[in-house]
Structure formats: C-alpha cells, structure tokens
Design a protein around this nucleic acid. Structure first.
Lengths: 203, 203
DNA sequence: GTCTATACACAGATAGAC
DNA sequence: GTCTATCTGTGTATAGAC
C-alpha cells in the first residue's frame, strides 16, 4: 500500500529528525530506517524539505494533545493544574530519548533562513499552543488570560531549552512554581488570597 | 603575523556560525570570509570542532559583559534593573542580524551528540551566567538568590527562543515584567510592599 | 511503486611546493 | 605560514529498468 509506505517514511523521519536534528540526518538514513530505497522516498516526497514539513505536521497534533493531557481537565485549582503540567514535562524530559521541542529546534537550526517553511510551521504551532493556553486560563477565571498565557509560554520554552542544555529537569520545577504563582495571583486580586510568591518560587 | 591571521579566522567564524548555524557553514566559507585558504585555516585550527570551540570561547566573555552592562551597576531598585535588562534584550533582539543565543543554538544543533565539546561549553556558559545572576541578586538583598536566578534564567531563555521563532520582541517585555515581579516579591516579605503581580504582568 | 545505479555538488581534511 | 591542487566521504536528487 502506498499509504503505509508513506507513513513508514514519515515515522522514520520523525524518529531520526527528532533524535539528531534536521541537517544531521540525510535522506539515506531515513530511507534505510523506513526499509525503502531513496528512490521510493523521492517518489512519495518531492524533497527533503517536504519531508521536514511532514515531520513537523505529524508532531503538531500529538504535541498539543500531550500537553492537554498534562494540564488535565478536572476541577482542581488552576495553579495546581499548571504546576502539574510542568511536573509532567519534567518527568517527560527525564527520558533518555527526550531532545527538547522539535519545533523550536527546527526554528533554531534554520534560523539563518527565516522564510523556510519549517520556521513558519514552528511559529504557527507555538501560536496555536499559546492560544490554547489562553483559552484554558480564561476558563479558569484568570483576569488577563492572554498576557498570562504568554508568560507561561516563556516559562515552558525556557525550561525546555535549559533542560536540554544542562540535562537537569529541575528547571521545569522552578518554572512550574513561577507559573503557578503567576496564575494564582492572576485569579483574584484580593490580597488575602495572594500566595507568597517568594515562598512558592523558592520551594 | 600569525595572531592576526588567526583572529581574522575566528572573526569570520563568529560572523558565519552565528548567522547561519554550525552545520550550515563550511570551512570553505569561513576561510573565504577571512581572506585565507583552507590550508591556512587548517594550519591554525586542528579541525572544524576546534574552530567551533574558539567561536564559543570568543562569545563567552562578550556575552556576559553585555548583560552586565544591561543590568547596570547603579543604585536603582533591583526589580527595575532586571526589567531594564529585559528591555535592553528586546532592543538588541530587534536588530536584523540578531539570531538568538549562540550557545543555546549550538547545544540545540548538537543535541544528538550530548558529549560534544560545544555542548559542554554551552552548559558551562549558562552555569556561569546563572551564578553571576545569583550574585547580583544576593547583593540586591534578595532572600533566595539562587532559586530566583534560576527562574530568571528560564525567563531569559524562553524569551530569546520565542523571539527567535516569532520575530516578536514583545516576549522579552512579558518576561521582564514577570521577572521584575518575582524579584520584587523576593526582596521583602512585608505584604504592603508586595506589588500586584497580575497588574504588573499584564502591563 | 519500487528497485539499482549514478549524477553532481560540497563537506572536512591533507599532500607537498614555496 | 601560506599557497594550489587534491583525496575521500557524504549530501540531495535523478535516470531508467522492472
């Protein structure tokens, strides 16, 4: 079947691109991993760039649904849900095969080519993610959901980058505590309900 | 002179590696940019990896001194100084040639080779940076300087990554406001002195 | 649709003259 | 110390048979 061949190629591309990066992986390696020849790969994909696009498109939905699971849908307080999301990220990042965010890494690798399709796809993904976060925050009763979503994005992104550099998942915990504090302070402006941010942040 | 030739090569490497990435730039291009031949380049550097190391070493001191300038040394309140640092980052990131953090980008490009010297240099640089931040926070009277320095690192790193992806410097502003709030709350635990984080964060 | 074989450019690195 | 010329591997992509 053509569909299964194509999907095998995409699976191989996902595995190798995420593990080693875009430029480090050649189409030879992807074809070999998929169990086909280069010629077959080029029958299904016009170019390596098209394969990169297919790789990122496959990751988009799965990544967002993963974070949806991490945030959860229960009736717990929103700050706790946010902190749980960061805790799940830390656990995920501790796995040996974890290599950060595939979208950010693609944008970084192609930073010299701002118009590259993969860079645009990365920006779209991040924007959709941020919009989803804002929706969740709004449903949770946050006063300024968009501004807060942006700050949580920064914390997520920074934690991922530093966990990748240092191989130390504690950055996600520090980020999660900061995020939870921001959310807690954004839900109610009554002073009595404010958590002590310094205490939480130091945790 | 041998020294000037070598430094011309390093300058060329800095320009090209930062602009286009490590793997995208070949030694041919660096030699051409430096005005020497490949053979001369290989007389001064054992390998491309050695050249990459020289590139990162040259960036280490300059990057840290740049942030030192941005933070300033005056007697303004620490939260304002931190926010100024993020504002300066935003201004810097708005320049057309800006391409994010060279160290993070190196670590990302080489994520598939965790033991690579450049990855270790990136980790060292980040660690030194974080230690410097902690010192400054401690001098500013912050209660938990190390934990706070780590959170500010996360905010810096995340802002840089998202500015690179979106080409939108407002992420640095959002991060700066969050950082200033964290610092303000970390200086004094007296409730009356706590800034309203939500108000600041939305700004 | 999938194969074998190959074109063509460019990568990092080296030989040996001057 | 710097040059011209070259080696060898690998990169993306293609020709043409089956």
């Amino acid at each position: 079947m053509s569909e299964t061949t194509r999907s095998r190629i995409v699976d191989a591309a996902e595995t190798l691109f995420y593990a080693h990066g875009l430029r480090s992986v050649g189409v030879d390696a992807i074809a070999a991993q998929a169990g086909v020849t280069k010629r077959t790969l080029y029958y299904h994909f016009e170019s390596k760039d098209a394969l990169i696009a297919a790789y990122l498109e496959a990751r988009d939905a799965s990544t967002r649904s993963r974070y949806r699971d991490w945030l959860g849908n229960d009736d717990r307080p929103l700050p706790d849900r946010i902190e749980s999301m960061f805790a799940a990220l830390a656990s995920h990042a501790g796995q040996p095969k974890w290599r950060g965010c595939g979208f950010t890494r693609a944008a970084v690798e192609l930073a010299g080519q701002p118009g590259h399709p993969a860079v645009l796809m990365a920006a779209d993904h991040k924007q959709r993610f941020e919009a989803w976060l804002a929706e969740e925050l709004e449903r949770g009763g946050v006063e300024a959901p968009q501004a807060l979503a942006r700050q949580i994005m920064v914390l997520l992104e920074g934690a991922i980058a530093l966990m990748l550099v240092h191989r130390d998942v504690s950055y996600a915990q520090a980020a999660g505590e900061a995020a939870a504090s921001l959310v807690a302070n954004g839900i109610s402006s009554a002073p009595a309900l404010h958590r002590n941010m310094a205490t939480r942040a130091v945790g």
